[in-house]
Design a protein around this nucleic acid. Structure first.
Lengths: 279, 279
DNA sequence: CAAAACTCTAAGGTTAGATTAGAGTTTTTG
DNA sequence: CAAAAACTCTAATCTAACCTTAGAGTTTTG
């Protein structure tokens, strides 16, 4: 009775999809108009086709591709539907985990930019409280300070590879740093065999993971790796002048690394730091 | 010194990207090789370009498009970086919310398929416990039972539109049902002005939301809307025969709707139900 | 009966590459 | 040192799910 035919525009409006979409669905064969005028090629839809279109939209929202939808609609097989749904669920959960990591990474990046903007002048000496951090550490046989930047790059690449090989999210590849033994710092020997990346507090447990305790740190800011020995020296002098007792390893922390722009502005920002014991 | 030039293949391997990708980055201008042989057009990269490639990969992981990355790299503007990051974070959070809803929807769909597979025969009468449910209800002036399926389709479409207009996720458009007043059921008048959709337990509060309490229900299963009056009659007779006291409104619940396949198998599954009071 | 509104097909654009073909270049191997 | 192997080049085509546009034809409206 109510077999009122709709032209493509009406059908589209009725279902809140675009005309283009309906034409596409026709072409890929998931929703053929129930009548096509052979003269004009006009498509005519019946109201009964709404259910099918609903189903298509619903499946799309479940994350299925048009191809998958077609397969399901053609075969009408419950088994297939269920297995598709289950795989979609798994997939969605993986996406979810990815997304969580990404949000964490973005947050850290924003933090990092903030810090960059508000950072003190180059050469500034401070004593500040730094709360605990978690790092992913890699040991290397080479001493960074004996080589130029390209060796550092290579080691960084190794570190990245390590992370990937162990199935850890690459997102964590962000701000790196190096560790130097307390003794070496105190004698200004400039030798380091440990490179690290900061990771989230809730990063999955792993043997290469180390916790750096919170503490008061003597810090000095600078904007180039080249100046590190010079500034390390200043940092040590500062500690000695004030009678601060160094109580742990020296860390060279990359706060921000924007050394990738065409512009020649300051683009890197480092903080050298040693933990202090008072009392 | 270490200005060792790498050919595109080495550079690709060193950074775990494809050669194609490097060529693309060259073309879109986000990573130009530091030297291109004008005779052969061979691309040569320096190890120093690794940092930039790292940055690109990092930004990609943060969800940026190559266009956005190019803009950032070109302008090198901290403000722009920060605002981009902030908008990416917002976007990621929205995606997250979407994804959560989707996972919920998929879970319900799987449930629904399970139920369909294990469903009793058509005409089966049961008394079963159904735990509480939350529904999004819409009132209509028309009585479904006085009209054919196309009116029902239209109302369903209205309901869908309502959901969208109120900014509620469309994912919830899944299994619909209708409610008939207890009195009308008892006198088999077949009149309903209320249509609903099931929603998640944690669906955001809303005036059109109603909770259907858990209860023991007398139920009958069927596979076509057309048979509803007949089966409602049987359900009532069943209650009367057993002396069951109906204590609430009658619900016609669509358990599964697969009426979209080409195949002519049973594709819809309904459960008529009335709550009972014992004791 | 003309204008407005609609529909048709076909082609090209979107992302971030992958793939392929055909030609040229560099490195390795005997 | 020449041939073979490995590499690189450009350009075109492919992916998904549409959107946009152009030019031509059709239906509805005033």
């Amino acid at each position: 009775m109510d077999d009122k035919m709709m032209k493509i525009g009406e059908m589209a409006q009725f279902n809140r999809v675009s005309v283009t979409t309906l034409r596409l669905y026709d072409k890929v064969g998931i929703l053929k108009p129930c009548y096509t005028d052979p003269e004009t090629n006009y498509r005519y839809y019946s109201i009964h086709q709404k259910a099918r279109l609903d189903m298509i939209q619903y499946m799309k929202e479940l994350g299925m591709s048009l191809g998958e939808i077609r397969e399901i609609l053609e075969k009408g097989d419950i088994q297939l539907i269920e297995s598709t749904l289950i795989s979609k669920k798994k997939q969605a959960k993986e996406e979810m985990a990815q997304l969580k990591l990404r949000i964490g990474a973005i947050s850290r990046a924003i933090e990092s930019v903030e810090q960059f903007r508000k950072a003190p002048d180059c050469g500034m000496l401070t004593v500040e409280y730094i709360s605990h951090r978690k790092v992913y550490v890699m040991h290397t046989d080479t001493n960074f300070y004996e080589h130029d930047i390209s060796v550092y790059e290579e080691i960084l690449e190794d570190l990245k590879e390590n992370l990937i090989n162990q199935g850890l999210p690459q997102v964590y590849y962000c701000n790196a740093g190096t560790i130097m033994k307390k003794e070496d710092f105190l004698s200004l020997k400039m030798v380091s065999h440990e490179i690290f990346l900061f990771v989230d507090d809730d990063f999955p447990d792993h043997e290469s993971l180390r916790r750096i305790d919170s503490a008061m740190y003597a810090c000095i800011y600078l904007d180039s790796f080249d100046d590190e020995p010079e500034y390390a020296k200043r940092l040590l002098a500062y500690c000695e002048d004030h009678g601060y007792a160094v109580c742990g390893d020296y860390i060279c922390e990359v706060l921000t690394e924007f050394n990738v722009f065409h512009s020649e502005k300051r683009s890197m920002f480092l903080r050298l730091q040693v933990p202090l014991r008072f009392r």
